[in-house]
């Protein structure tokens, strides 16, 4: 399938490449591929893996046979009375929330991370400035949950122990219950996510920016390009591959996102995401079949991004 106009520069045998790849492949097979196959198998069985999922169908209700767990995973959160209830319930379901997370958090972290990486590149105390953005990554989720409670806390009288509500009330406003008011609560959680993960994007993007040869940027400046122009037409194109990598990574991280929601709201008040729902089905409800079906859906959701990456992988080879 590979068009071999990408001939390798050096001689290589048939075996050598595999010597480089095999150790990693073996480890991944044992720790990820084999358990995943196990997971796929379980997703077609009932709650404790003793019979086919089809046996859990209830008479008189819709049934997808062996895909019954998938039916549950996909439709249980929807209110299908009519189109508008279905639409509304979708946006409060774990899938709807996932879309909100994907759009807002991925954009937020990548843009902020990129802007900060570029800006910090030009100041004296770069390491110090970057470490501030990086710091939230180093705080464990428990710690982050505690501190954001002090930001969002909803005090009910004169005393506000949450900073945001203290500011709002001192300006004469009414306090807001940030974590239980639908639909703003999901966005409040996304802010926590952006706060934690921007440091990740910044670090990776910063190392890409560092690898742009100085001469290239200087040349553009000498040609009279403004700083913004240098950023958009020199830097961004050069680091575009890295931006794709960061976006893909963030998409994957957001799809897997669990701790922030679990620690702060436990998925209540319509803030569930796919991973928290999977956890609830697996462990709180001990519904292994349904939990694993959700996990498989999660893996399927990543396919568009795989395609995107393979395309870029091929392009990169043709170009060089």
């Amino acid at each position: 399938m590979a068009k071999t106009n990408v001939a390798p520069v050096m001689k290589q045998g048939k075996v050598i490449p595999w010597l480089y790849v095999l150790p990693a492949l073996i480890i991944m097979t044992i720790f990820i591929v084999y358990p995943m196959i196990n997971t796929i198998n379980l997703s077609f069985l009932n709650k404790n893996g003793t019979a086919s999922a089809a046996t859990t169908c209830v008479e008189g209700e819709p049934c997808w046979g062996i895909f019954e767990n998938y039916r549950y995973a996909l439709t249980a959160e929807l209110d299908t009375t009519n189109f508008s209830t279905a639409w509304n319930s979708f946006w409060l379901s774990s899938y709807g929330n996932m879309l909100k997370w994907l759009v807002v958090m991925v954009t937020g972290t990548v843009v902020l991370g990129l802007v900060f990486a570029v800006l910090a590149d030009r100041i004296k105390h770069e390491a110090l400035a970057k470490s501030v953005i990086f710091m939230p990554m180093a705080i464990s989720f428990v710690g982050a949950g505690v501190i954001w409670r002090f930001m969002y806390n909803y005090g009910t009288s004169k005393v506000q122990t949450g900073l945001l509500n203290a500011i709002i009330t001192s300006l004469g406003g009414e306090p807001v219950a940030f974590l239980s008011t639908i639909p703003i609560n999901t966005f409040m959680l996304i802010i926590v996510g952006i706060w934690m993960w921007t440091g990740f994007c910044m670090t990776i993007l910063s190392s890409a920016i560092k690898s742009i040869p100085n001469e290239v940027i200087e040349a553009a400046r000498i040609d009279g390009a403004g700083e913004f122009k240098v950023f958009t037409s020199i830097m961004v194109p050069i680091i575009a591959p890295t931006i794709t990598v960061v976006i893909t990574t963030m998409v994957i991280n957001v799809l897997k996102l669990f701790d922030i929601v679990y620690v702060m709201t436990g998925g209540n008040f319509s803030t569930n995401v796919i991973a928290t729902r999977m956890y609830t089905e697996m462990y709180t409800n001990s519904q292994d079949g349904r939990g694993t079906a959700i996990a498989v859906i999660l893996v399927i959701a990543i396919i568009p991004f795989i395609v995107m990456n393979i395309r870029r992988f091929m392009q990169q080879e043709v170009m060089r």
Binding site: M1, A2, V21, L25, M28, I32, V33, P35, M36, N38, T39, T248, T249, I252, L255, K256, A275, M278, Y279, M282, T292, A295, L298, V299, A301, I302, I303, F305, I306, N309, I310, F313, M314
Partner: peptide
């Protein structure tokens, strides 16, 4: 290519599973 595609996909496998 196939291996690389699988690799990208493997990143999303939830640890709990």
């Amino acid at each position: 290519y196939v291996l690389f595609a699988i690799l990208v996909g493997l990143q999303v496998v939830p640890l709990q599973m």
